[in-house]
Design a protein around this nucleic acid. Sequence first.
DNA 1: GTGGTCTAGACCACT
DNA 2: GTGGTCTAGACCACG
Lengths: 123, 123, 123, 123
Amino acid sequence: MKIIINNSSMVPIYEQIVDQVKALIRRGELKENDVLPSVRTLSKELKISALTVKKAYDSLESEGFAVTVHGKGTYVAAANQELLLEEQKKELEADLELAIQKGRRYGISDEEIKSLFELILEG
Amino acid sequence: MKIIINNSSMVPIYEQIVDQVKALIRRGELKENDVLPSVRTLSKELKISALTVKKAYDSLESEGFAVTVHGKGTYVAAANQELLLEEQKKELEADLELAIQKGRRYGISDEEIKSLFELILEG
Amino acid sequence: MKIIINNSSMVPIYEQIVDQVKALIRRGELKENDVLPSVRTLSKELKISALTVKKAYDSLESEGFAVTVHGKGTYVAAANQELLLEEQKKELEADLELAIQKGRRYGISDEEIKSLFELILEG
Amino acid sequence: MKIIINNSSMVPIYEQIVDQVKALIRRGELKENDVLPSVRTLSKELKISALTVKKAYDSLESEGFAVTVHGKGTYVAAANQELLLEEQKKELEADLELAIQKGRRYGISDEEIKSLFELILEG
DNA sequence: GTGGTCTAGACCACT
DNA sequence: GTGGTCTAGACCACG
């Protein structure tokens, strides 16, 4: 499983894992009942703490994207693509909202924020 | 001085103060040599700890936007407004770009991202 | 790590820590990527508040002598010896300037101050 | 009475007054039983708080260089001028020695320290 | 375990 | 009155 960790990123490691597993599921590279790498295997592969991988898997499970079976492993749950899409949209929404709030705190007008956004989107 | 604190935000209170003071300076509502509210006054006004306000003022001072005189108060320093605006825009730009990239990784179309953005901006 | 705190000194505790860590780095007793004691550990060792240690580490970080990684610890930054030397020269400069100003306030002539200085330097 | 206040100096204002009054006494510009300006007069002249002048006079009195008579004013006390000069020189000497020692601890050569000193003295 | 933020209040120095 | 420092402890996020 191709997971790339960016240690210098501001994004927490466990969140990077969660995001990328979700992306793999949504792109069909991980399907229902596929087995995720064991916590220990992935932690060694990524050279991070097993606790961090565990936290990522817990997060995936609590969101309904994975199911852990004691003594067996963690499996990809029934792919609810609609759920996943909604979840991803909400995430994007939150990011955009944070950015907009910051711009407003900086005293930048909504018009300026919008034109900046469009510039980036088109660029 | 109008400072609005959002306690449920993930952004630290002291950073919210820093951001908003910078915005006030940039918009010309705070000018060189103006006195900022005393640490105690602002802390009572915002119903937060004096130390939190102090931390914000320390940050402003270390970035060159304020000057503190012992026993007298904290004053707005001569500021390079253009530089300030550029820095803030770059920060906002980076945030927006990260959000857009995440949306695209999730397979959300640019049109959808844009309409989501506009919804938030107007809402 | 040998840090000695003088509680009766006029120099703030956090500044004493900053100064001594810088000295350790410059003397090579602390090298790049070395881990500084955790905030809690050092605070217990020195019998001071954790916040005071934190303030010292924040200061070191803002000056570029340390890098903090959330959940992991605080590390000695890439040894920028030039930066350190400059910083130390500025400190010395400030001390000398204060002494000269005091001499002048005392009505001692620049010539006398200079000869006094040379006497001490040679002695 | 010529007193010059440097607001941007790190030295407290009351200490600047104390130092300069001592210098005036030592140079004979202020003699035994001369009257010092009233607290209110000097505070207006220097555009500082009367409390600050009061603190300076209190300090001079506690060191034996002035005597305050209720309802009359503050007078210059009988002073041992030679002793005063010696004390002041020793104080300056101690400050210079501390600065030099710090420079040497930092590995700065005596030549560099000396040229730094002369630069400040001339500047 | 680590650091990050915040509180409520204390004491001190300077004006 | 002002800022400067420090405490003892809380709660959270990250590994």
